[in-house]
Design a protein around this nucleic acid. Structure first.
Length: 861
RNA sequence: GUCUGCGUAGCCCAAUCGGUAGAGGCAAAGGACUUAAAAUCCUUCCAGUGUGGGUUCGAGUCCCACCGCAGACACCA
């Protein structure tokens, strides 16, 4: 055999071309094999990929290749989450149309991703910005509207008065628009909503069935949905003009504390607050001040609890006593009824508020004997009711029901379920998104665009300046249309959809990218649910909750049969890398930085000393993304793939360090050497000429045979459990063992060596597909591994005939014996006692524990 | 503050049901090869599992408390 060097730079493109030319990754739709749908969360085409993306797509590819070998018909597509703000920002900066920018980025990213040798069926590629995609989204949006799953209403938003747009909460920094720097206003505007709360219970209850999801994600979703049970009732309210007709509806999860109510609070947006402000300028000022806070969580957290006393009082439903009503900055209009009964003795916020405004505090729950109760604080724990008239003496948990029953019996209140989850506001005053397919007519109201007029396509001739408002609204002609119902003059809705809508159904569209329907029933019901979904933990709530909701909505509308889209979920840990900043405050990419051993860092070119910040998730804004391309250019794709899978468990957060890449490279070099530097010829390897373990007499060679088959077993089960790092370690072990026989002259050993190398190539193939194909060819094989079946192992060859028996005395290791694997309990005990005789001399054996195949523990004293 | 996850060798990480703490890799040191270096190969070194209790014949693994790190949520009445 001629000795050649491992050169991935020629062999990787060659094999990629061969696979593509033969179209081996095209989805098999013959229906003869069981289906397996593996999907990685699709990328936003920012143009640049970093090693975090690489890890995501590589792990999906390993699974896809493994399942394909196991005989599944695998669907493994990829597309682009192509709408969104970065394209518009680029348009503002570079005067390039968002579509053009996006498509250029898609080309770049696709080229980069293809370097990894991914087994993707590119015939199913889609981009959400294409009319052929979003027209279907508009179609089912209208269907959902007809079922009441979509509606529009006035809602509070963060409004940037300079950029003239609504901002998401995360786009508000310190109460100011992230780009304009202008103080954000809280405004009320007409917004489109998905009625996600209608499915709150389903979304919560169905989490139980998602047994192949990480517990963490299920918990996070459950918390996000935030179901609570309580009591809703209405206080009679008296004001300066007598009885206030509407009263004040409140929701409480602590009806047991009803007798401790000493005042009430309402949100600044509550009608009673508005009523107060009518004739009271300082009340109006107070409300304005609260709204100036913005809606960011940080701002709310820092705010001191403040209130403003209204001229209204509420009549306690049980005692008939009048209690004051305050406007309070911490009461949220969007949760419950926007008004709360305040029980300062048993609620921390109410306690702080009562102390500040010198309001009475009435204890109604007594802590159980022996509980330490903090002084000068609300007691929020369990206990027995006191000062509560007929409810006295009740355990507070039972009192909850008793109080609710009391209200229900009198028909003045009811048991209520409440959710933290709110309806999903999807309106964005943006150009680069899916147009909401509605027309606003003065006469007919909000009218859906007739389906035969879809798509409502984005106009190409727009100027995107970043100020003055939504380019669709400013466009001279686009929005002016005739009303589809009365034919009169009307205007299009100019809001576009949140891009999370686009990404909530793409996985279904992949099953039928060419269909004229939004979803082809046969295809979508065949392939869904996704058998294995893979993505970053950062999407644990929003994307995954939205996608689950849209699936349920699509089911209700009649497009799919499944109620959950993703059967199993693998959450890949984030990939972090260090952040550096120069004196101007600019982030410097780690590639341009020399990190010194003392923890300081300097710029590679300028030599400037840099500020070293903590490790953060790779991102554009921190400029700390490490691109995989240079690694592929230095080591080849297989090394990157191997390293990505090996360096840590896939779900664990990874601090990117390249120091291990060399190890992966060296390993592949050794695998190459197993074939190319063996002391004998391997190119006559015969798949059908494997020695059986019983036909091998040499003990060491029996062990070699065992090693081969144990490796196959381990890699198979590790891949099934998504333990990629240990599966690679097993391959390394086998290679190390085989290395000992590289120059063997023994004929039996040579046969086993060939079997070992061949087995190694097959089990390593999903992780390192190129090198293993090439070496497989060098074994004289005419098949391709990509089309080969996954190897099985010989049950007989994974059984040990000897084991190490550990002998403990009182739990301490004393001896190790090599014994037959099938040794009986009695014999094991007997041998153990003999072996440790010196250690138990003079002691009485009290007990002997025998763990078959493992150890004997002798308890003696 | 609440919830979740994680703390094992200088570093990244293994360790079925509770049963020999070490599989794999990085780094380091020594050696081989080389005119030399790189590359490669060989050998070696290193912890008793964050801390304190408990259960058990036996705890990295189970229970309790605490500490540290990470993430999510956070005035949700």
């Amino acid at each position: 055999m001629t000795e050649t060097r491992y050169n991935p730079f020629t062999l990787e493109p060659e094999w990629q071309k061969r696979w593509n030319d033969k179209n081996v990754f095209k989805t098999d739709t013959s229906g003869t094999k069981p289906k397996y749908y593996v999907l990685e969360m699709f990328p936003y085409p920012s143009g640049k990929i970093h090693v975090g993306h690489a890890r995501n797509y590589i792990v999906g590819d390993v699974i896809a290749r493994f399942k394909r070998a196991q005989g599944y018909s695998v669907l493994h597509p990829l597309g682009w989450d192509a709408f969104g703000m970065p394209a518009e920002n680029a348009a503002i900066k570079n005067k390039v149309h968002p579509g053009k920018w996006t498509h250029k980025n898609i080309e770049e990213m696709k080229t980069d991703l293809n370097l990894f040798g991914l087994s993707i069926d590119w015939d199913r590629e889609l981009a959400t910005c294409e009319p052929n995609y979003y027209k279907h989204q508009q179609a089912f949006f209208i269907d959902m509207y007809k079922k009441g799953l979509v509606y529009s209403k006035e809602a509070h938003v963060n409004w940037d008065p300079v950029d003239q747009t609504v901002l998401a909460n995360e786009q508000v920094v310190d109460g100011k628009g992230w780009r304009s720097g202008a103080p954000v206003e809280r405004r009320t505007m007409k917004q489109w909503f998905f009625n996600i709360t209608r499915y709150a219970d389903d979304l919560l209850n169905d989490l139980e069935g998602l047994t192949e999801w990480p517990e963490q994600v299920r918990t996070m979703q459950a918390n996000w949905i935030g179901r609570s049970e309580g009591l809703t009732f209405t206080f009679d309210v008296t004001g300066p003009e007598g009885q206030y007709a509407d009263g004040m509806k409140v929701y409480t999860t602590r009806p047991d504390t009803i007798m401790g109510v000493t005042f009430c609070s309402v949100a600044p947006e509550h009608p009673l607050a508005a009523e107060t402000a009518k004739n009271d300028d300082s009340a109006a000022a107070f409300i304005k001040e609260c709204q100036g806070l913005g809606t960011s969580e940080e701002a709310i957290e820092k705010a001191e609890k403040k209130g403003y006393k209204t001229p209204f009082t509420a009549k306690h439903p049980i005692t008939g006593e009048d209690v004051p009503i305050y406007i309070a900055n911490f009461v949220l209009m969007g949760y419950g009824t926007g008004a709360v009964m305040a029980v300062p003795a048993h609620d921390e916020r109410d306690y702080a508020f009562a102390k500040k405004y010198d309001l009475p505090i009435k204890q109604v729950i007594e802590a159980p004997q022996g509980t330490e109760v903090e002084a000068d604080a609300a007691y929020t724990g369990a206990g027995t009711l006191v000062n509560s008239a007929e409810f006295n003496g009740l355990d507070n948990d039972k009192a909850k029901s008793a109080v609710i029953d009391w209200f229900e019996a009198k028909n003045i209140g009811e048991r209520t379920v409440n959710y933290r989850l709110r309806d999903w506001g999807i309106s964005r005053q943006r150009y680069w998104g899916t147009p909401i397919p509605f027309i606003n007519c003065d006469k007919c109201g909000t009218v859906p665009v007739p389906k035969d007029q879809l798509p409502v396509q984005l106009p190409e001739d727009v100027e995107i300046t970043g100020h003055g408002g939504n380019p669709l609204d400013l466009h001279p002609s686009w929005k002016h249309v005739d009303c589809p119902e009365c034919g009169g003059k009307a205007v299009r809705e100019t809001d576009t959809m949140d891009t999370f809508v686009d990404s909530s159904w793409y996985y279904a569209r992949y099953t039928c990218v060419d269909s004229d329907l939004p979803l082809d029933p046969e295809a979508v019901n065949h392939w869904l649910p996704v058998d294995q979904y893979i993505g970053g933990i950062e999407h644990a709530v929003l994307h995954l909750l939205y996608a689950r909701f849209i699936t349920k909505a699509l089911k209700e509308v009649g497009y799919v049969n499944v109620k959950e889209p993703f059967k199993a979920l693998l959450t890949q840990g984030m990939v972090l890398s260090p952040c550096y900043r120069d004196s101007k405050g600019e982030y410097i990419n780690p590639l341009d930085v020399i990190a010194h051993s003392d923890g300081t860092a300097t710029h590679k070119e300028t030599g400037e000393k840099l500020e070293v910040l903590s490790n953060e998730k790779m991102s554009k804004s921190k400029n700390n993304g490490v691109p995989p391309k240079p690694l592929v250019e230095t080591y080849g794709a297989d090394t990157l793939r191997l390293f990505s899978m090996f360096c840590a468990p896939i779900e664990r957060t990874l601090e990117w360090a390249e120091s291990g890449v060399d190890g992966a490279w060296r390993y592949l070099g050794r695998v190459w050497g197993l074939v190319n530097e063996a002391g004998f010829s391997l190119d006559d390897y015969d798949v059908n000429k494997h020695l059986l373990i019983d036909d091998i007499s040499d003990k060491k060679l029996k062990d070699l045979k065992r090693k081969i088959h144990k490796t196959i077993r381990k890699v198979t089960s590790d891949l099934e459990k998504m333990q990629f790092n240990t599966s690679v370690a097993a391959c390394m072990e086998l290679a190390n063992t085989l290395g000992e026989y590289r120059n063997t002259q023994d004929e039996t050993a040579q046969l086993l060596y060939k079997e070992g190398v061949a087995s190694l190539l097959r089990v390593l193939n999903p992780v390192a597909p190129h090198i293993t194909e090439e070496l497989w060819k060098q074994l004289g094989q005419t098949t391709w591994l990509v089309e080969e079946e996954w190897p099985g192992y010989d049950e007989n060859a994974v059984k040990d005939d000897e084991i190490t028996l550990v002998i403990q005395v009182n739990g301490k290791l004393r001896e190790k014996l090599t014994v037959a694997a099938d040794i009986s309990k009695e014999d094991a005990e007997k041998e153990a006692l003999t072996a440790v005789e010196p250690h138990i001399a003079g002691l009485t054996v009290r007990k002997t524990i025998v763990v078959p195949g493992r150890l004997v523990n002798i308890v003696a004293n």
